[in-house]
Write a protein that binds this DNA or RNA. Structure first.
Length: 224
DNA sequence: GGGACGATCGAT
DNA sequence: TCGATCGTCCCC
């Protein structure tokens, strides 16, 4: 398996290589969801779209733990057209629209057939930054680290929509490749963001992020 | 057919 | 802190 070893050579640290040949295999996703969530911090999300390729390093992710987790869309075992992907094979995309406006991207994880997933909340742009800026119609001078700061923003910048719903993340055009942490970086945990309705489940420390990283989203207290 | 509800964002 | 905004879900 990959991951999170400080000092490891990163794709953007020398010769960028976001080739699909390197993508994380199904076995990566077929592990306990919180392990996958933590291990995805540092990994790269890559989208080879017709307009061009974009990629970003994951700096923030949250685990959603299935039927018992009142913060999850699959709470109570609820299965609808929207949540169906979470009941399918691991390593596929669960993409949903929130507030009728913003797409959010998850990777389906865990022990089949539990409907669990990892929400990717923020990326450090690593490739295709100009295309990202075009997609979000960023004003000139917009900080690069703001382009993918938040689950809705990163989908807009990466060109991720419902058209990619259920996609196998080992096939493309959307996939993930191993990354890691840089010297001085670490992974912190906190409660998940914006699930106050989930009662005691809202307090579970299932959000993982690189503290102090400028691309991390959420309230200031949860960015450091 | 209709109403309530968001795993958010951006302006204030 | 607050309102926009509209697809999804569920009830009538």
């Amino acid at each position: 398996m990959t991951l999170s070893s400080p000092g490891r050579s990163l794709p953007d640290a020398g010769h960028p290589d976001f080739s699909r040949d390197l993508c994380l295999p199904h076995s990566f996703y077929e592990r306990p969801t919180l392990d996958v969530t933590r291990d995805l911090v540092g990994a790269y999300l890559v989208h080879e779209a017709e307009e061009g390729m974009t990629a970003g390093r994951i700096v923030e992710a949250e685990g959603y733990m299935g039927p018992e987790d009142l913060g999850a869309h699959s709470r109570g075992g609820k299965m609808t057209e929207r949540t169906r992907a979470m009941y399918g094979p691991r390593g596929h995309a669960y993409v949903f629209l929130i507030y009728g406006a913003h797409w959010c991207f998850n990777a389906v994880t865990g022990r089949f057939p539990l409907p669990q997933a990892v929400l990717v909340r923020a990326l450090e742009p690593a490739a295709g930054q100009s295309l990202m800026s075009e997609r979000v119609a960023a004003r000139p001078g917009t900080a690069e680290m703001k382009l993918c700061q938040g689950p809705g923003k990163l989908c807009r910048a990466m060109g991720i929509t419902g058209a990619l719903y259920g996609l196998d993340l080992t096939v493309g055009p959307l996939y993930l490749v191993p990354g890691g942490l840089r010297p001085g970086e670490r992974i912190a945990e906190s409660p998940r963001i914006n699930i106050d309705y989930a009662k005691e489940w809202a307090a579970k420390p299932w959000r993982y992020y690189i503290p102090g990283h400028p691309a991390v989203s959420g309230p200031a207290a949860l960015r450091k």
